[in-house]
Design a protein around this nucleic acid. Structure first.
Lengths: 348, 348
DNA sequence: TTTAGCACTCCCGAAGTTTGAGTGCTAAGC
DNA sequence: GCTTAGCACTCAAACTTCGGGAGTGCTAAA
């Protein structure tokens, strides 16, 4: 259909697209040819603009909501905008300094994640999200077993960065306090300095070996450790802040949409998956509207960036807001926050 | 004004109030005299009802939103309803059994609180809230200090019920691993079997004593313990579930109200205070609309009940929903859940 | 004390009207 | 071949009008 005209958008048309998107992001109202003519700075009449717009519409970059409204960017329009047109507006030095200050004042990783997501939300007036560091990069430090009533055992797993995971497990057999202590000692010696990822792998293979040995204590210790490590995996989680900011956006102000969106925050599942994408890609990712394929986010965009600690991808953070968000400001903020969070985590 | 007529409401009028509230809770629409005449079951004409309604209005128990609408209960109307008119509808045996089953399958207190609030929300289709047990009743079990980089020390506080609190503290002076271990040992022996509340009191007085002793280690141990205990106090917290259920109620469907409400969930402060009321009163409390004095809850009611473990008030749980909620069903559900949660916690 | 009757009030939704923003098309101009 | 003025046309949003319905308060009679 549009193919016979021109599959690529000429430079001028791109420029108009840029101006249109910027304007639409500013006011949230369909942009008409007259407005665009003025905004563009070029000395062209509305009629000319109309021709260009018509082309852009054929290419699926803009649509008009109805016959006599202006144009609004489509998903593809936004896509082209963020991919190649947007002029990024990095935050001022004062903002960066403030960010840095507030991140460096925080001691433990969990609190740091919470701060970061609050900062993201504060600076963008949208929702901030920070995925807490992945297991693979966490170093084992110490494990502790405490007997509770019945067979139940409280296990405490401490990692190098000062994070504490605890879980109550209920083995079939009863263990005495001294047995548990012995088991913990064995594990602590044996796995000192390993990462959880590594530990997991070694546990699985060594459990096999231990079955042939007579070393009962070791076998049981391994079993319990495996239970804990395994479940510490499901701790894989994120912290969200400023969700209520999203209620102020007209495009999300319909209860059913908003409810779906908020439910998706509680459910976590899918959102985690999207965040993970950015970790895999090892680069900033932007999901615009339906691009994510996850319906609750249909009218939202997600700007995510992985953050790294000592050269290793440690986690992901980002911002959730309406599709119509100020990408030019948000992208640099997410980018810088990721860098600063990484740096703050390094000081462990 | 109304005083010269009759300050107390006669029995028939009370009955009509009851029927009116029930009807209004059912449909959410102002109840007119004709409807009420039918609903009441008594063989009276609408005109008679109108006279009664007029009296109720004078007493401030009902209002009409505008001249030619039916009547709607006021806060006082609801108050009288829940205090003396409502016919409670206890949940069926199947529901109770289901509640019990789901609560008893959970191991640790924190998860238990989460389950309970989810169950409350599920059964009522509103938001469930569970305040986690108060410090005063928590028994100390063990404390652990682990050195981190710099002066920072990871402190792990384990309580009898298998709960783990951890915090990173940063003392002025540096402590070696063995010093920390020694300190922990001292504390563990010294405070074995005390409640956190008790421990706090003893710590304060013993810190004074220790200053005169030469026992440096002990003095420092006390100091660090105090820091941890003190901050474990601010863990004072609640878990909320089903907040999004609230979005389905028309009376809360305005963004500004909803936003205030949701913000109040994040802020926690005031809500905690309200929950605490129920703990102090040692009885079920119902805040209807503005009664709570906390504006974000203006259009909500809060039904709370303390729960006790082994005869001691351990915490509070409840339900948040619109003022127009099915009190007859909600009250028993909250009541029973409190009992069952208490029972489930006892099995520690 | 209760009730029928009646005039009155007010909300609500439907239907009509106006306004203004914006479009596409055509034909003329550079 | 691009650009532009002119014009007819479309459509949503805002405002107005209007009738119906639900419910009230009052009065007078049972």
């Amino acid at each position: 259909m549009a193919d016979n005209k021109s599959l690529e958008v000429n430079e001028r048309a791109q420029y108009f697209l840029k101006v249109l998107v910027e304007r639409y992001i500013r006011d949230g109202e369909p942009v008409g040819s007259r407005t665009l003519a003025k905004d563009s700075g070029l000395d062209l009449s509305p009629a000319t603009i109309r021709n260009v717009m018509s082309d852009l519409e054929d290419l699926g970059l803009v649509v008009s909501p109805h016959t006599s409204a202006g144009r609004v960017p489509t998903i593809s329009g936004y896509r082209m905008f963020v991919d190649s047109l947007v002029t990024l507006k990095p935050p001022g030095d004062r903002e960066v300094a403030s960010l840095q200050r507030q991140l460096n004042g925080v001691a433990d990783p969990k609190a740091l994640a919470a701060s970061a997501s609050q900062l993201l939300s504060g600076f963008t007036q949208m929702a901030g999200v920070v995925m807490v560091p992945k297991r693979s990069h966490i170093m084992f430090r110490q494990i502790e077993f405490l007997p509770l009533s019945g067979n139940r055992v409280l296990t405490i797993l401490v990692t190098k960065d000062g994070e504490v995971h605890n879980r109550i497990i209920e083995p079939k057999k009863h263990y005495s306090a001294s047995e548990l202590e012995q088991a913990a000692n064995l594990l602590n010696q044996h796995y000192s300095g390993a990462s959880l990822e590594e530990m997991h792998k070694r546990l699985v293979s060594e459990m096999e070996d231990a079955r042939h040995d007579m070393n009962q204590i070791m076998a049981r210790a391994l079993e319990m450790a495996e239970t804990v490590i395994d479940s510490s995996d499901t701790d894989d989680d994120f912290v969200l802040a400023g969700q209520t900011n999203l209620m102020d956006f007209d495009e999300l102000a319909q209860m059913d949409r908003l409810r779906q969106l908020f439910d998706s925050f509680t459910e976590k599942q899918h959102l985690l998956h999207l965040l993970d994408d950015s970790l895999q890609a090892q680069a900033m990712q932007i999901f615009i509207g339906e691009e994510s394929g996850y319906h609750p986010l249909d009218h939202c965009s997600l700007v995510t960036s992985p953050y790294e600690v000592e050269g290793e991808m440690a986690g992901v953070l980002g911002v959730i807001g309406p599709t119509r968000m100020a990408y030019d400001r948000v992208i640099p903020i997410v980018d810088i926050t990721a860098k600063l969070l990484g740096a703050a985590l390094k000081q462990e």
